Simulated assay, not measured.
Amino acid sequence: MPARRTRGQRAGLTRQAVLEAALALVDREGLQALSMRRLGNELGVEAMTLYNHVANKEALLDGLVEQIVLSVAPPQLDASSWQAGMRDFAHALLTALRAHPDVIPLVVSRPATTAPNLHVLESTLRSLHESGFPAHRALDVVYSVTNFVVGHAATMSAQNATEQDTDDDQPGPLLDLDADEFPFLTAAMRVEPRIGAQGRFDFALEAMLAGFEAARTSASAPEPGPDRRREQP
């Protein structure tokens, strides 16, 4: 005999459905609109029913970060194409963050430490290690690229909030600066065409990847991963 559902519980409700509904609510009305009661109303259940799927509000917020991470396919890496894989990952993550700007503050402030997120991280680290990075350097690569992308997305989101164009430089009063007092700033802002925010993103990302490649190829011998042990003398 099937178990009787509690009052307000809806058949087929899952953790994933709860997180998807929460993300849709935040996208539509902002993070401040998210509460367990409001989310329950969105799903047609009592707020207490949600605790069958998420432990508390904190777990719900962690789940929103998880949804952003899992929407980006883990990079496919090998020694000959790890840069292309990380490049694609960076652009995909930026796209995902820009699609959900109200979740960016959560991504900035909350570590992506749910089990699904950690599995993605583990897979990426394994691929980077197999591409020639020591395990600790692989982690540095992932954190560096991720933090760069998140910071860039946060800046773009803040500029959007003040109705500034984030894709092209808007020099405004900077063009009226005294060229004698600020010669380099004036010269830089008057160069046409300016590459804009996206161009600077690409420039910085390529510089990071080139630096990581130099570190990878200069490593004398990658340290063993967790599945290998150093040989004893």
Rank of each mutant, 00 (worst) to 15 (best):
M1D: 12
A3N: 11
A3P: 07
T6I: 10
R7E: 10
R7V: 11
G8R: 09
R10N: 09
R10V: 15
A11C: 00
G12Q: 11
L13S: 10
R15Y: 01
Q16E: 06
A17P: 02
V18P: 05
V18H: 00
V18M: 07
V18N: 07
L19C: 05
L23P: 03
A24D: 14
A24C: 08
A24W: 01
V26K: 00
D27P: 00
D27F: 08
R28P: 06
E29I: 02
L31M: 11
L31I: 10
Q32R: 13
Q32L: 14
M36K: 04
R37Y: 02
R37K: 07
R38A: 10
E42Q: 13
L43T: 07
G44Y: 08
V45A: 04
T49F: 03
L50S: 00
L50M: 11
Y51K: 12
H53W: 10
N56L: 05
L61Y: 06
L61R: 06
L64S: 03
Q67N: 01
Q67H: 04
S71T: 01
V72L: 04
P74G: 01
P75H: 09
D78H: 08
S81D: 01
S81Y: 03
W82V: 01
W82A: 03
A84K: 10
F89D: 06
A90C: 13
T95S: 09
T95C: 07
H100E: 00
P101Y: 07
D102Y: 01
I104Y: 03
L106Q: 03
S109A: 15
T113P: 02
A115K: 02
N117D: 15
N117Y: 09
N117L: 01
L118R: 15
L118S: 09
V120I: 14
L121H: 14
E122L: 10
H129A: 06
G132A: 04
F133E: 02
F133P: 00
A135V: 13
H136C: 12
R137M: 14
R137Y: 04
R137P: 05
A138M: 10
D140R: 09
V141R: 04
V141A: 07
V142H: 11
S144Y: 05
S144M: 04
S144F: 07
V145R: 03
V149I: 12
V150Y: 04
A153G: 06
A158L: 13
Q159D: 08
Q159W: 05
Q164A: 09
D165C: 11
D165T: 09
D167K: 11
D168A: 15
D168L: 13
D169L: 08
Q170W: 14
P173V: 15
P173F: 14
L175T: 13
D176R: 13
A179S: 15
A179G: 14
L185A: 15
A188E: 14
E192G: 05
R194P: 07
I195L: 07
Q198L: 13
F201R: 06
F201S: 00
F201H: 04
F201C: 01
A204C: 08
L205M: 00
L205P: 05
E206P: 02
M208E: 00
A210F: 11
A210Q: 15
G211E: 10
F212L: 08
R216P: 04
A219N: 14
P222V: 05
P222E: 01
P224D: 12
P226Q: 11
D227W: 10
R229A: 15
R230F: 01
Q232L: 14
P233N: 13
